[in-house]
């Protein structure tokens, strides 16, 4: 049994399957990016709230 080799050969040497690999990779990357951007925005919001708390306006 040569598991990863046969799989890779199957994917990479048959012409169309590389597109499905690319699709999977891009979906995963997109999900990752979505998470990153959401976290980033949430953090910015929480940081500004924290700034308010630290230096409250009179």
């Amino acid at each position: 049994m040569n598991f990863p080799i046969s799989l890779l050969q199957d994917i990479l040497f048959t012409s169309d399957k590389i597109y499905s690999v690319l699709a999977v990779v891009l979906v995963v990357f997109g999900a990752f990016l979505f998470m990153m951007i959401r976290q980033d925005r949430r953090l910015s919001q929480m940081e500004s709230e924290m700034n308010e708390k630290d230096n409250p306006h009179p």
Partner: peptide, 14 residues
């Protein structure tokens, strides 16, 4: 970062 990674992923595979 996003642009370069997308380039490396798409072009690198195709």
């Amino acid at each position: 970062a996003v642009a370069l990674l997308l380039y490396a992923l798409i072009y690198g595979l195709l």
